[in-house]
Computed example of a mutant assay.
Amino acid sequence: MQTNPPYNSLVALGDSFSEGMSDRLPDGSYRGWADLLAARMAAAGPGFRYANLAVRGKLIQQIVDEQVEVAAAMRADVVTLVGGLNDTLRPKCDMTRVRDLLTEAVERLAPHCGQLVLMRSPGRQGPVLERFRPRMEALFACVDELAERHGALVVDLYGAPSLADPRLWDVDRLHLTADGHRRVAEAVWQTLGHPPEDPEWHLPPEATLPPRWAARRVADARFARQHLLPWIGRRLTGRSSGDGLPPKRPELLPYEVR
């Protein structure tokens, strides 16, 4: 008889992807795939604990400096690490440095957790993906190498057709919708050895008629005004959307499902 793996604690590290943007709850806070995964793991057995150290906008150096040592000290059964993608989107990105920092993070975390989980992050179809694809794929090659070397699991979200579908991305075109986060939680759940609840998470939603040309142009203008220009402004001034924000769950505590 198949039994669920005995995972009693989870710690998530990273940036906005692991924080849960843009899976917004009615109270204005963000849920996201890590919270959804924690809820499933909590339901599987008593005494489950969860921490989420992720903060939007963090670069891999900040993740190493601010999150890795804290997570290693928690000695959780499962640690998820997703970082480096924000670096690849910067105009000036030293991929050798990104690779070295990701390696440092994995080497510091792997000995101090039961199971380390890494990810090949999802990429939305479109010109942004094509522009930065070589950097992203170099990052994912590093992820694969580190996983093999340190016994980490890799969740391949980059290769999932569903998560390339623009319909699963929020209006800011940087973060997944609630359905996108649900699919990521399912992917991690299965990778950890649990029986699938949605075996077809990787398949895109049913086909729908594309929006008309005028609607697309209105959406493009709204995106540029509300998201692209502020993002460029932060890059030019050296600011981040996460400046001054604390982690969403800084301590490894029992998780109550909301």
Rank of each mutant, 00 (worst) to 15 (best):
M1Q: 02
M1W: 02
P6V: 03
P6T: 04
Y7M: 08
Y7K: 06
N8K: 14
S9C: 05
L10D: 01
A12Y: 00
L13W: 04
G14P: 01
D15T: 04
D15P: 02
D15E: 07
F17A: 03
S18G: 04
L25M: 10
L25Y: 01
L25T: 05
G28A: 15
R31G: 07
W33M: 00
L36H: 03
L36P: 01
A38C: 00
A39D: 08
M41A: 04
A42M: 04
A43D: 13
A44E: 12
A44T: 09
F48T: 06
N52R: 04
L53I: 09
V55P: 10
G57N: 03
I60T: 10
Q62V: 03
D65H: 09
V70A: 14
A71V: 11
A71R: 07
A72T: 06
A72Y: 05
A72K: 05
V78G: 12
V79Q: 06
T80D: 03
L81S: 11
L81W: 13
G83S: 09
G83T: 03
G84L: 14
L85R: 11
N86I: 04
L89H: 11
L89Q: 10
K92D: 15
C93A: 13
V98C: 13
R99N: 14
L109K: 01
A110T: 04
P111V: 11
P111S: 11
C113W: 08
V117L: 12
L118A: 05
M119H: 01
P122Y: 04
R124G: 10
Q125W: 14
Q125C: 13
R133N: 10
P134Q: 07
R135S: 05
F140A: 06
C142G: 07
V143E: 01
D144S: 10
E145D: 14
A147L: 13
G151W: 15
D156S: 01
P161D: 09
S162K: 05
L163F: 04
A164V: 04
D165G: 14
R167F: 02
L168D: 02
L168I: 05
W169H: 02
W169R: 01
W169E: 01
D170H: 10
D172M: 00
R173G: 02
L174W: 00
A178T: 11
G180W: 06
R182C: 13
V184L: 10
E186L: 09
A187K: 02
W189R: 03
L192D: 10
L192Q: 09
P195D: 15
P195Q: 15
P196H: 13
E197Q: 15
D198L: 08
E200P: 00
E200F: 06
H202M: 01
L203W: 07
L203Y: 05
P211Q: 08
P211Y: 07
R212T: 13
R212S: 13
W213V: 15
A214C: 08
R217C: 14
A219W: 05
A221T: 07
A221S: 07
A224G: 05
R225Y: 06
H227Q: 11
L228E: 07
G233W: 07
G233S: 08
R235F: 11
T237K: 15
T237P: 11
T237Q: 15
G238K: 11
S240K: 02
S240P: 00
S241C: 12
P246R: 06
P250H: 14
L252G: 09
L252Q: 12
Y255F: 15
